[in-house]
């Protein structure tokens, strides 16, 4: 009897130890958007940190040595990909965390699972401006891609922590349900803009306008990465003169140019954030909430 009780106590202790010592997976995300999705899917089985907070042009980020620490200790790294974040490769190289080497489960590149827009063909060079050879990299701005990103994160988390796979899947299904419900709401609120001609400073919004079936006309840049010229703006003015139009401008592009162009075109102007402002599980939804409000003001 005594030994039987001891055995039961020992097995209980072992079981409790497993629960107590199981640590969350450490996830590093390049932006708040992927971090938010990872927090939703992973729940308390993940601890998520972010390399770049807020709305930033990810191409211009200077990698810092302090970023290496997060990468060194991570079980999973979620990058943007599409050569937009090449500085991440430097971090992976210096961190020397083999769990995050390309093709390992901990290396997550959602750009490989989405349908990329504006993928160029043929010979491209400087005449075409700063073209992204793998397509437009702002893919998180389509909620449908948010779903694909979430599915990828679910699959990879399940590989890294198989015992929590059911939890990840349940959370994914909840994420899908909530996202689709909100998507209907956002679409409904944006539908009055479908008759407007939309212009933007740079090709940031392609996935957003595609998702919500808005009517995108052109960018103020004549080609990507080249500042607007008077000639190009006058050409655009001719195209929008008979229509209601709106200029949308990511906050890290020159707001003054966008505002003055809006005055020139007699268009409305909306400065817009491009990324979630926090990393909590609702932050990705709040990004679209905010975009819808700012677009319709």
């Amino acid at each position: 009897m005594f030994y039987s009780n001891l055995k039961s106590l020992f097995l209980t202790f072992l079981l409790l130890s497993t629960v107590v010592v199981a640590t969350p997976l450490r996830v590093v995300s390049i932006t708040n958007d992927f971090a938010s999705i990872a927090n939703y899917i992973g729940g308390d089985r993940v601890k998520v940190s972010v390399l770049v907070n807020g709305s930033r042009n990810l191409h211009d980020i200077q990698a810092k040595p302090s970023m290496v620490l997060s990468v060194r200790d991570a079980d999973m790294l979620i990058r943007l990909g599409m050569s937009q974040d090449k500085w991440i490769d430097g971090l992976i190289e210096v961190a020397r965390n083999s769990k995050l080497f390309p093709n390992k489960p901990g290396y997550v590149d959602p750009s490989l699972v989405i349908n990329a827009l504006e993928v160029p063909t043929g010979q491209i060079d400087g005449r075409h401006g700063d073209i992204h050879i793998e397509g437009n990299p702002h893919y998180w701005l389509d909620p449908q891609n948010g779903l694909k990103i979430a599915a990828l994160i679910r699959d990879r988390l399940s590989q890294l922590d198989p015992s929590s796979a059911d939890l990840f899947n349940t959370n994914y299904q909840q994420f899908e349900k909530e996202l689709m419900s909100k998507f209907s709401t956002w679409s409904s609120k944006l539908s009055p803009l479908k008759s407007d001609l939309i212009l933007s400073y740079h090709l940031v919004w392609s996935y957003f306008v595609d998702a919500f079936e808005l009517n995108f006309l052109a960018t103020l840049e004549p080609v990507p990465g080249v500042p607007p010229s008077v000639r190009h703006l006058n050409e655009l003015k001719g195209k929008v003169s008979q229509s209601k139009s709106k200029i949308i401008c990511a906050v890290y592009y020159p707001q003054k140019v966008c505002r003055e162009s809006a005055n020139l075109f007699k268009a409305s102007f909306s400065p817009l954030i491009t990324n979630s402002e926090t990393e909590d599980k609702e932050a990705y939804f709040k990004l679209f909430d905010r975009l819808v409000v700012d677009m319709t003001q």
Partner: peptide, 17 residues
């Protein structure tokens, strides 16, 4: 990037050497 990962790929050693 990681000598242990290259030389001993099946090992769980994750030393940043």
């Amino acid at each position: 990037m990681s000598l242990p990962a290259t030389l001993f790929p099946n090992s769980s050693i994750n030393l940043p050497l």
